[in-house]
Design a protein around this nucleic acid. Structure first.
Length: 258
DNA sequence: AAGCGTTACAACCGCCACCGC
DNA sequence: TGCGGTGGCGGTTGTAACGCT
């Protein structure tokens, strides 16, 4: 009889979200936090599947999201991580603060994949597409990074077979041993990812504090919502919202409740 | 200016793992 | 220990925007 749908199909709206729906969802999450997605549509007054709400929130409405194209450093990091983890986008996204698995997956399929093919590199195995023909830009830094990491990895395993290296410490070790990746990370440290601290409460830094000071939070819930929607319109990064750590977001939640 | 092809990305679908009962 | 519910993940699709002829 087939699988039961994740939610009642009757009366469930599909397709692009409207500003009104976004507003309702943001309002609800700010007031109640993230809990029991199945109940969210009903409680928030949305004719949507709970799954759809979760996706909308995590991929689009979440306040710590960076918007816009991935930087060169981010792209390089994605390539390196993909070489190790394969298509495990959520794991990759976890290492790119402010980026979602969906966003990275899309970017991989539309940009990076083609880029690698153009460079003569198999986007799946991260090996040269044809051993005989040399990659066009073999001298480019990017390519060096890829070649280094893949030669290092492929000596024993394929990217996907590396799945057993779920152990983060092993991954971290391998990252620490990767010069290209370290270079990317050091570039990041020069310009810390704003969102990094936001979802890792304890990771709040002086930069965060500075940023928070400069970012004046709206005082009322209505202001919060309008402000959040504006943030989505302009890209959260531009607002410096990414500087907020989890505690600060909780503060916003508290404000919203009052 | 219009039609067509391509690109980019939001959203959906189905499967799977985990958790509580 | 098995079962059902739920959330998360990765693959895929749909469509709006853009570029080219």
């Amino acid at each position: 009889m087939g699988r039961q749908p994740c939610c009642d199909k009757l009366g469930v709206k599909k397709g692009p979200w409207t500003a009104e729906e976004d507003k309702k969802l943001i309002n609800f999450i700010l007031t109640n936090g993230q809990c029991c997605w199945r109940a969210v549509p009903k409680l928030a007054g949305l004719r949507r599947c709970g799954k759809s709400c979760r996706l909308r929130w995590t991929n689009y409405l979440r306040p710590d999201l960076k918007r816009g194209l991935l930087s060169e450093d981010e792209q390089q990091l994605v390539i390196d991580l993909h070489a190790r983890l394969g298509n495990r986008w959520s794991k990759i996204a976890a290492r790119l603060p402010g980026r979602t698995d969906n966003e990275i997956k899309n970017h991989w399929n539309t940009h990076i994949k083609k880029k690698l093919v153009k460079m003569g590199i198999d986007p799946v195995t991260h090996e040269p597409l044809n051993n005989e023909s040399k990659p066009e830009q073999s001298s480019s830094p990017e390519n060096e990074g890829i070649t280094n990491s893949s030669s290092e990895d492929n000596s024993s395993t394929t990217p996907t077979s590396n799945c057993s290296t779920d152990d983060d410490s092993t991954l971290l070790d391998s990252i620490c041993n990767d010069e290209t990746l370290l270079k990317s990370l050091s570039l990041w440290l020069d310009e810390p990812p704003l969102a990094d601290a936001s979802w890792n409460g304890a990771g709040a830094t002086a930069a965060t504090e500075t940023c928070s000071k400069e970012t004046s939070l709206p005082s009322s819930r209505e202001d919060n919502i309008a402000w959040l929607l504006d943030c989505q319109d302009f890209g959260i990064h531009d607002f410096g919202f990414g500087c907020l750590n989890h505690n600060e977001l909780n503060t916003m939640n508290t404000l919203a409740k009052e």
